[in-house]
């Protein structure tokens, strides 16, 4: 059986506080992400999500336990280069991640550092920009782009390194609805068409329902792990972790008190509309 692309084995991480006070951020965390999976990570601020993200490619090293990327231990400094070629991170603030004056130079920065030959860099940069729908902006200046466009450029920068996995650390938090949709569409496409493994940390429940699998973190621990249907069925646990149901699920729940025939596993707007329609179409049929 192939090894998972990212694996946490009983990982704990404690920040050394300023006054020597240790602050545990991640506790005994174990999970494995197989190649090609789209995993959403939910949890309130301070639940350890961002720390977990930084543990994925050795930006932080576990205080206890092990993080393996494609079988390579992130604590082994000799492997870090190979680890970061596999797993890249897109951060929250679109303005902090672009360093070059022209978009295509920024995307080329990674492969240049990997000593990729120039002709190959050209191919990779073009492909990466096309994959996120930013090719026509390749000669633009970063400050002229919207937040969603900047985040897509950051994604292209990782794609140009031919990474296997991308970790998104609340990459949509600072975007407007249009920017969020652009980024989400790009991420879904990369996952489905190119098999890029995705670990998507977010506060938006409607984004999490699009994943194959949802992890919920609370107080540095893994609280829930399952399909979106299974996780969002655990309403009480979610509420205790400071999270809420996606609105279509909340609406369906409210309706179910009066329309018991409505199915239990409604998560998206489409699910909800279709289920309501079916309910009335059937009723209409019965009434005739």
């Amino acid at each position: 059986m192939p090894s998972p692309l990212i694996e946490f084995q009983n990982v704990s991480f404690t920040y050394g506080g300023e006054e020597g006070e240790p602050v545990p951020a991640v506790r005994e965390l174990s999970f494995a992400v197989p190649r090609g999976e789209f995993v959403a990570v939910l949890g309130h601020n301070g639940s350890g999500k961002s720390t977990a993200a930084k543990l994925c490619n050795g930006l932080l090293l576990p205080t206890e336990g092990k993080v393996l990327v494609d079988g390579l231990d992130t604590a082994d400094e000799a492997q870090l280069f190979d680890i970061r070629r596999r797993v890249g991170i897109v951060f929250q603030n679109p303005d902090n991640q672009i360093i070059a004056a022209i978009i295509e130079d920024d995307v080329a920065f990674g492969p240049e550092n990997l000593n990729v030959p120039p002709a190959e860099i050209r191919t990779r940069v073009d492909e990466a920009l096309k994959a996120v729908g930013m090719f026509e902006h390749r000669l633009a200046e970063p400050h002229k782009l919207s937040g969603g466009q900047k985040q897509r450029v950051a994604i292209a920068g990782i794609l140009a390194m031919r990474n296997d996995a991308i970790v998104f650390d609340e990459a949509t938090a600072m975007l407007d609805p249009r920017g969020r949709r652009e980024v989400m569409d790009a991420v879904l496409r990369l996952n489905r068409e190119q098999g890029i493994t995705v670990l998507f940390i977010t506060h938006f429940m409607e984004e999490a329902v699009l994943a194959d699998r949802v992890l919920v973190m609370d107080e540095g621990r893994l609280l829930l792990d399952g399909t979106p249907q299974a996780v969002f069925a655990q309403q009480n646990a979610l509420r205790a972790a400071g999270l809420e149901l996606p609105i279509p699920a909340l609406f369906a729940q409210k309706l179910r008190a009066h329309f018991p025939a409505l199915p239990e596993d409604i998560l998206t707007e489409e699910d909800c509309a279709r289920a309501i329609f079916r309910l009335f179409a059937q009723k209409g049929g019965n009434a005739q």
């Binding site: 609406f251 009066h258 209409g284 009434a287």
Partner: peptide, 20 residues
């Protein structure tokens, strides 16, 4: 709002004359 939505569907159910 969710409340309006619920009210509307209840009205529709009543109008189409079928028991819930």
């Amino acid at each position: 709002t969710l409340e309006q939505g619920l009210r509307e569907l209840l009205r529709l159910a009543a109008e189409s004359g079928c028991a819930l």
